[in-house]
Design a protein around this nucleic acid. Structure first.
Lengths: 141, 141
DNA sequence: TTAAATGCAAACGCTTTGCAATTGA
DNA sequence: TCAATTGCAAAGCGTTTGCATTTAA
């Protein structure tokens, strides 16, 4: 079922602003911030307002159509839930973001459930550290 | 070497404000926010200002005397580095924070290094999810 | 027709900053 | 003595909110 249908099903209106935000989210190659969504939206629909972006994102979150990820940048990033959940390695030196395969965190998830009774929600997980390249550079220096 | 000595060694002054912030951090039972530090500081030194708290925390971070942790609350929490690094499980339902034993994440750290060349910095890691109690409650309901 | 959604402007909470006054070494 | 540090007030940033206006259904 498409985002549009899900909105409708739940009694929400399909406004042009919402359709554009959804389209922008779908076209985004990476996790995208509210500000970036707004900039793209504004280009195509100059009257649009950033508060509408936030309200739309809030709604899409409630409907589990988008998820949030916090890369420790002081702002949150969004992406379409159906695109699947990547986990991320964020380099503290160069800012690069490495996508992590879904199964890489399965052992951790299992351990937490078994030993702590804790059902980890790893959908938005970002782990910071140093990437291979930056570590090489540092070794040389 | 104590925090006071390290500050001195690096050419920084030992002001009463800084000494109090350090003391408050050391006495804190859990990770503590800038606001909470300020409230305690203000009680003992009413002229103190919150910008001094932030500047002191910035300095202590640079000297690796404190670390930051982000529990997704929209504000960061601090704790004394020498107290060791706990990892945290944050319950999305009740907000409870469960401390995780240091070794619990070693396998993950090893995997990331081996397979991605990525040196994960897990000092501030907080994993969100649902704690055992809340899962029980939900099952009943 | 009408409740839902928008645009606008103002406020929010946390954090940072410029600057003159103070103070530790 | 004098650069480092502080307090203050103002601004900065991302986000949220109240309200009158517009609009999808």
């Amino acid at each position: 079922m498409s985002c549009h249908e899900i909105l409708r099903e739940n009694g929400h209106r399909l406004t042009p602003q919402r359709m554009l935000v959804i389209e922008i989210l779908h076209n985004a190659e990476r996790h995208i911030s509210a500000e970036e969504i707004y900039r793209q939206l504004h280009r195509r629909y100059p009257y649009a307002n950033i508060s509408t972006v936030y309200r739309t994102l809030e709604l899409l979150k409630e409907l589990d159509l988008v998820t949030e990820a916090d890369f420790g940048e002081g702002r949150v990033r969004y992406h379409v839930a159906e695109k699947g959940h990547h986990h991320h390695l964020v380099c503290q030196s160069c800012g690069k973001i490495i996508d992590l395969e879904e199964p890489a965190l399965h052992p951790l998830k299992d351990t937490l459930l078994r030993e702590y009774g804790f059902a980890a929600d790893l959908r938005h997980l970002a782990i910071s550290g140093k990437c291979g390249e930056c570590r090489k550079k540092k070794r040389k220096a």
